[in-house]
Amino acid sequence: MLTALLTKSWRDHWKGLASWAGGLIAIAAIQLWVYPSIRESSEGVSQMIESFPQAMQEVFRMTDYTSGPGFLNVELFSFMVPLILIAVGVSWGAAATAEEEHRGTADILLTLPVSRVRIIVTKMIATALVLLGLCIILAATLIIGTRLVNIDVSAANLFAASFSCALLGMLFASLGFLIGALVGRPGIATGVGIALGIAAFVLYSLAPLVDTFDAVTPVNPFQWALGGDPISNGLALSSVGWLAGTSVVILAASVLAFNRRDIST
């Protein structure tokens, strides 16, 4: 029964997903293509970076920029990849809980002999699979690409960095589910979810400069995902635990909220 719903999800969204996947492959490929020239002029680049204000170096975490992993960290994993995966996750979460109600298709879907809990959990699984799929595609691109341009970084660590971002995406996806289940408006759920993602990103980025921001860093999901520098150090169990645990709690709350919700048109 639920395979019918998964199949339908895939059918509805594979084109959109293909373009996200293509986008991830493209930005990874471009950075990998640029990197050799950075490496060749590494002295000059290092001097240039040292000439940047200290604050800017800290915000963009540019120490170690000319090493392969450091470069990928700055160019991919500190901004582009997390935000793309957050955007995909939030929009899937919001769509799952709020879109069908808002459009009116929920009337028939939710009066089928399948409980709301099973339907929403199936959609959560679909979202997790989507993020996992994008993470694998990105990691595969990077693993192949780094081999081609001779960047010395292990496949495991590239996967670790991608997977951390996918978990980060899943955490914000769960917020999309929750807000969608509470307000029933896909636009609001997507907007608020992405705004929260950007706010967390800004807090995390400016934390080295602003003490009050730094105070919340321990509970900032970006810190959980990226603070341990997964591309250099691999996956830390604690960061996976925090990201996954928080997601599960928020997802459970969204199941409860969705199950109680008045579906109106």
Partner: peptide, 8 residues
């Protein structure tokens, strides 16, 4: 069940 505002 046939909803009043049918959306497919």
């Amino acid at each position: 069940y046939l909803p009043g505002a049918l959306v497919l």
